[in-house]
Design a protein around this nucleic acid. Structure first.
Lengths: 245, 245
DNA sequence: CGAGTCCTTGACCATAATCAAGATATGTGG
DNA sequence: CCACATATCTTGATTATGGTCAAGGACTCG
């Protein structure tokens, strides 16, 4: 295993979208961190119906959370990007009710579930930050629920593209032309949006033709964010800063 | 305003589904609680796009969280029952991204947003409990997302009925015949499930005819939970105990 | 009794699912 | 380098789930 990144040197902290931590917070997190996990693209980090004694934060790479029904139907709940906190459910409940899979190679910072209470005791402000993360994820799920419940296929796709692109932008993953490497396949998109693969493809085709965006060979380009937001009926105001753990 | 309930005397604490608190936790919460809010059935507690300086817990009554799109389409995100913690987003972000409305008269315990950090500092175990609540709500949203994305109308309705009934059962709101007062109208169900009112009605009719359940005049009766779970493709294991705040 | 809310049902329509097949890549072993 | 296999994307034809429109019934309440 390669040498691990010290939290004080975490490259994510340099990004504008993460708040500055105090010395004591940083020192605590660095001690709290018990290692790093390298995971290959296309593998399962956490499995539905199993339990786990770890909590992770994403240092690098992207993935997604999903649930499967016993007859095989599956639903992607949300996509996971650097800075995200994952596996909190595993730390609080007996059993995971979702799986986590990777889309690219990922690097995860590993924390022990057993240390969580100590985090709350020793660094209340970090405890608060954990709630912040849980609450932000809930907001994303809320909006996703609106998509699945009330948006048409075209609107859903436009919304999801805006969200993914915005997050990538915040993280500095987008180049000057609005292009970002996102190896999300059409079947992933279909599973996230509650659509069939075929209909996802046709709708995506429709959006691409109007030249507001393109998504080819794992590269997403957004050319006209405003129009996409309009199509999606999404008010699209930008996010404030995130407290990284 | 009527006299408020002291946390030490909270009727919810007597229920099996809530964990016992220590003396010091109870004393803290009681001081933390700044009052009680009585809200009539059919009113709005928190409004989308506004901000709020309060967090609430539900002492009595039921309601729901919803989001509206600017063209009027609306989506109910989840139903709210006694013991739930609400308005956490308002405490952490500038603006609410959802509204909260009541279905029955409700009594809410009021806490000041500004006191939240103190809660984390003085009572880390309660801070942990806040995360627990956020995480449990996330789980419910996850499963709801599976419903909207991958379940048919019939499955969705069966699932929702099981969930609502289970929660009511835990809270001791169900009488011996499996009957509970739930003044959720068909249009609420439709808005929660991403269905039209008409189709909700027809599907509900279909389920009622098979005698596993009935929902009339605001009273829901579940006669055969197992069959409903099967219809819903829901594994339906029961919940463990909840830490009330 | 009229007005409002909620529930119910039938007829028709549309969005998206399913089925089927082919096109484009990419990679592998011979 | 080719033959073959696999994954991904694309498109057309057909079907079905659920939406929309319209209207009437049941009940409550002032």
């Amino acid at each position: 295993m390669s040498t691990t990144t010290r939290c004080q040197d975490c490259p994510l902290r340099r990004l504008d979208c993460f708040r500055q931590f105090s010395e004591s917070e940083l020192a605590f997190v660095d001690r709290f961190k018990s290692g790093e996990l390298q995971v290959e693209a296309g593998s399962t980090v956490l499995e539905q119906s199993t339990s786990s004694t770890h909590v992770f934060t994403v240092l690098k790479g992207i993935g997604f959370r999903k649930k499967v029904l016993d007859d095989g139907r599956q639903q992607i709940l949300n996509f996971i990007m650097p800075g995200d906190l994952i596996g909190l459910q595993a730390a609080l409940f007996e059993e995971m009710e979702h799986s986590i899979e990777t889309l690219t190679d990922m690097t995860l910072c590993v924390f022990q579930r057993a240390d969580m209470l100590r985090l709350f005791q020793d660094q209340p402000s970090l405890g608060f930050t954990v709630v912040w993360h849980a609450s932000r994820e809930e907001r994303m799920l809320d909006e996703h629920l609106v998509s699945l419940g009330r948006r048409t296929a075209r609107e859903r796709i436009a919304y999801t593209i805006v969200i993914l692109h915005d997050r990538a932008l915040q993280l500095g993953l987008v180049n000057g032309d609005g292009r970002v490497h996102l190896p999300i396949r059409q079947h992933h998109l279909a599973d996230a949006l509650g659509l069939s693969l075929v209909h996802t493809n046709k709708t995506l085709r429709g959006l691409s033709s109007s030249d507001v965006m393109s998504w080819k060979n794992g590269y997403l380009t957004v050319r006209d964010r405003g129009t996409l937001c309009q199509i999606a009926r999404y008010d699209g105001s930008e996010e404030a800063e995130n407290p990284l753990i």
